[in-house]
Amino acid sequence: MNKIALITGATAGIGEACAHVFAREGYNLILTGRRLDRLEKVAHHLNDKYNVEVAVSSFDVRNREQVVENLEGLPAEWKKVNVLINNAGLSQGLDPIQNGSYDDWDTMIDTNVKGLLYVSRVVSNWMIGNGYGHIINLGSIAGKEVYANGNVYCATKHAVDALNKGMRIDLLPHGIKVTAVHPGAVETEFSEVRFKGDKDRAKKVYEGFEPLAADDIAETIWFVASRPAHVNINDLVIMPTAQATAGNIFRK
């Protein structure tokens, strides 16, 4: 039977790119996200192209009841997950702390921290029961540094960094691998979501240099997941060549 990868936030960007890479490598997939139509489109494409089985489950990771109900409702054979990619995450706004939106703060904390926890709580128990597994958490350079007006987003990604380290320790006796991948600037829907649909403002973020692409991160995640059983990559930071730190980008 094919190995299984569960990918959250698989409707676009890094999550969708991961789905393509893992399908290419022969994994069956569980794809989750809020946009069912996008999930189904991706699933049909991957099934046709790679002849792998793809299950879709549409829910919001911020909603604990939805997470538990949808994941625990999967058939037993789909709970033999080899790789969990905690990709679902976002940023909202770019404001100094004194002007920040309460709603934006809640959205980021509920998605980036609590959503990751809800999914990991369910799937880690499956992995313990199965006796194998690898959890890969999508962090950010914002989890290693703090930049102006990134306050709460940076705080959530620092939390992911800490949770990754905690998971690594807690799951060590069970032989479960745990990795964090922390990208710098990646051109996806990220900035468009941050700026709430302002495509012109989002485009300016990536002007004057070549950012990372979703495929770059997906291939890196595949590299991490494909190491031998005795090898665990705990922590990985990946940047565009033109970016040295969160706020230091060389633009031509």
Rank of each mutant, 00 (worst) to 15 (best):
P183F: 06
T11A: 07
I217S: 01
R64A: 09
V123I: 14
G139N: 13
N125C: 07
G73K: 07
F223D: 10
T188Y: 11
N87K: 06
S58I: 08
I169M: 13
I141L: 12
E40F: 01
K252W: 11
I233G: 00
L117A: 07
V123L: 03
G133H: 07
L117Q: 07
N137V: 08
V83W: 01
A142D: 11
A213K: 15
E187K: 15
T156Q: 06
L116D: 01
E189Q: 13
A225S: 15
N63W: 02
R121I: 08
L171F: 12
H158E: 04
A225T: 10
W105Y: 11
Q243S: 03
R64F: 00
G100I: 13
A23E: 02
L31E: 04
L116Q: 06
Y102G: 04
I217T: 05
A244P: 00
V52M: 03
W105E: 08
Q243R: 06
G129C: 04
N112Q: 09
H158W: 15
I141K: 08
A148M: 13
K252F: 14
D60S: 06
D104F: 12
D235A: 04
N232F: 05
L39E: 00
N151R: 02
N234H: 13
V113D: 07
P75Y: 04
I135F: 02
M239V: 03
E145M: 06
K49S: 13
S58Y: 00
I141H: 05
K204N: 12
G175N: 11
E207R: 08
H182D: 14
A12I: 00
Q98P: 00
H174F: 15
G184S: 11
F223Q: 07
F195V: 04
H182Q: 12
G143Y: 02
N86P: 02
A43E: 07
E53S: 13
D110H: 07
F250A: 13
T241E: 07
A17P: 01
T245N: 10
D235R: 04
S101F: 05
A218N: 09
S140K: 01
Y118M: 06
D95T: 12
N63D: 14
D235P: 01
L116F: 09
E53W: 00
E192P: 00
K199H: 14
F22S: 03
E207A: 15
L29P: 06
K204E: 15
R201A: 14
G93A: 10
S226C: 10
K157A: 04
D215R: 14
H230S: 12
R201N: 05
R35A: 01
Q66K: 03
H45D: 15
I135H: 02
E77N: 11
V224P: 09
N232C: 14
K80E: 12
P183E: 12
V67H: 08
I97C: 09
L117R: 01
G15C: 05
Y50G: 01
L6N: 03
L212C: 11
V21L: 03
R168C: 08
I141N: 01
N99E: 15
I4C: 02
F190Y: 14
K196D: 10
F22W: 09
K165N: 14
L212W: 09
P228R: 03
I217G: 01
E69N: 14
S101I: 07
